[in-house]
């Protein structure tokens, strides 16, 4: 299945793109993150949450949607 992944803030600097589509055959967000971690090693040093179809979800959630987003916290003000 093709999944579109959106990266926010400094996560997009780690991945060097704001959006990409990857082919993925697993079932959960965690498994998808494993794929991303092996693709982008620096990702594991970053805190972020994951949204599926514009809704923030726990990592053990099953992937049902085609749109995933990685959202880091921002400190700046």
């Amino acid at each position: 299945m093709n999944i579109s992944i959106k990266y926010f803030g400094f996560i997009a600097e780690v991945t060097d793109c704001e959006e990409e589509t990857i082919s993925f055959s697993g079932t959960t967000i965690s498994e998808l993150l494993d794929v991303l971690h092996s693709k982008y090693e620096a990702l594991k040093n970053n805190d972020f949450q994951v949204a599926q179809n514009q809704s923030l979800v726990p990592f053990e959630t099953e992937i049902t949607g085609k749109e995933i987003a990685l959202l880091p916290p921002f400190a700046g003000g």
Binding site: G9, F10, P72, P73, F74, A75, G76, G77
Partner: peptide, 10 residues
């Protein structure tokens, strides 16, 4: 709540 980073905000 508001927070910013470079060109992005929450």
């Amino acid at each position: 709540f508001g927070a910013i980073y470079k060109f992005e905000g929450q």
